[in-house]
Design a protein around this nucleic acid. Structure first.
Length: 269
DNA sequence: AATGCTTTCAACCGCCTGATA
DNA sequence: ATATCAGGCGGTTGAAAGCAT
């Protein structure tokens, strides 16, 4: 849907509604990183967001806030949700307090779509996740998968495919390419063998497997221009690290860290 | 391949509550 | 005591994507 605009009355500026754009996310994250949460209506105005305070609060609490954990509900979490829902009823915010990183909205959706509407044996058959969801699939699986999941199927052909994917990414999704480089540099995974090998061993092996889109990662425009720079300058660990530390602020790294902590894992679906 | 149905989930709506003047 | 307002919460909607026919 194209983001709709609601005109309050003639002569007043329209307030944006509908899906949040990357730019709006960045404005909100940057503002809150600098000034903190609270007073949402005034925050929205002060940040220059053409959104109402409730919308900003919802976006922050449910999707942008550090530590928000998305992706598949684990069996253990499922059991907790069932138990607490039986005990408390639809007190989603209270239930969410027992599931660190989960939001009331997510639990509510999970309950309605996975538990309430279906008998247990019918569950699963997931569709491809939405953009926002793919940003975050898998804290539960992520820690182990990011170190061993793809790597377990990795071999020479995968590395070669990784190289192709990586080069394709550079032209087709420059910001994501750049973010791979940035994070690899920051975490020291670019070693003498170069960025592509590091990435091939830790991530998807083909462009088809890459679900990331522009809307799914932060600082897209900055990363795009940085990708242009690195594309011409070449990439090695020290120059990439130096470049990104000089080019981006702490809030950038906070956002990127959060993104990568919850990034999707190949094979999760 | 085209079409309609189903599922998922991001986001909005409206009510409730608590703080404050 | 009460009016007002902002924030929190639960219910609902609608778009997008998968699935079935």
């Amino acid at each position: 849907m194209a983001a709709s605009m609601v005109r309050i009355c003639a002569g007043e500026p329209a307030v944006r509604k509908g899906p949040w754009t990357l730019e709006e996310d960045l404005v909100l994250v940057s503002y809150i990183t600098e000034h903190g949460e609270g007073s949402w209506d005034s925050l929205a105005r002060a940040a220059g967001l053409n959104r109402n305070g409730k919308s900003c609060r919802l976006r922050w609490l449910n999707y942008l806030r550090p530590g928000v954990r998305r992706g598949s509900i684990t069996p253990a979490e499922d059991a907790v949700i069932r138990e607490l829902q039986a005990a408390m009823g639809n007190k989603w915010s209270r239930i969410a307090k027992h599931l660190p990183g989960r939001t009331d909205n997510e639990i509510k959706n999970y309950w309605r779509t996975r538990i309430q509407k279906r008998p247990p044996q019918q569950q699963q058959t997931r569709r491809k996740p939405s953009t926002t969801t793919m940003v975050a699939e898998a804290v539960s699986e992520g820690a182990s998968s990011s170190s061993s999941g793809s790597a377990s199927q990795d071999d020479g052909s995968c590395a070669a495919a990784g190289d192709r994917w990586f080069m394709q990414l550079k032209t087709e999704q420059p910001a994501y390419y750049c973010q791979n480089v940035a994070m690899a540099a920051a975490t020291g995974t670019i070693k003498s063998e170069g960025a592509s090998s590091a990435l091939a061993s830790q991530d998807s092996c083909s462009a088809e497997d890459c679900w990331y889109t522009q809307a799914s990662y932060p600082y897209y425009s900055q990363l795009s221009s940085a990708a242009d720079h690195l594309g011409t300058a070449g990439v090695d660990a020290s120059s990439a690290t130096q470049f990104f530390s000089s080019e981006f602020s702490d809030s950038f790294w906070n956002t990127v860290n959060n993104f990568w902590e919850t990034r999707p894992v190949k094979g999760a679906f």
